[in-house]
């Protein structure tokens, strides 16, 4: 390995670690709304809180995904696509977090609940 290799590796690592913390800082507030988008279009939105317990079945073009909202978190628990990447993703609960399912062009986003002032939102860590 040459000196330039180390410079390249260090630069890339420093940049991505800074970006990682920058992204993380936008994902610290507990969200209150799940937005389900297919192909960029809103399919369904749903408000949720720590007490919401709901299973949502999303069916579109032969793709079937099951989303579970429980304990203030949103998790994809079932998918009929071959790769199951979305099922392996961790549950999400903070604003701006997403779960992606590429085969069905599905994105689950967490947003702040509309109508609630920031100070009134309980931050659950």
């Amino acid at each position: 390995m040459k000196k330039n290799d180390f410079i390249l590796i260090a630069t890339l690592l420093i940049c991505s670690i800074i970006a990682f913390f920058a992204v993380n800082s936008t994902q610290t507030r507990q969200g209150g709304k799940v937005v389900i988008k297919i192909d960029g279009q809103i399919y369904r939105t749903l408000d949720f809180s720590a007490t919401t317990h709901e299973e949502i079945i999303i069916e579109n073009n032969g793709h079937r995904n099951v989303l579970l909202i429980d304990n203030g978190r949103v998790d994809m628990i079932e998918a009929n696509c071959p790769d199951k990447t979305c099922v392996r993703q961790k549950p999400i609960q903070y604003e701006n977090q997403t779960i992606v399912c590429l085969p069905s062009k599905l994105v689950i986003e967490i947003e702040a609940q509309i109508g609630i002032e920031e100070s009134e939102i309980d931050i659950i860590q």
């Binding site: 936008t26 960029g40 701006n96 062009k105």
Partner: peptide
């Protein structure tokens, strides 16, 4: 593909 740029996160 999914027309969503939040994935860049």
């Amino acid at each position: 593909m999914v027309q969503n740029f939040k994935i860049v996160f």
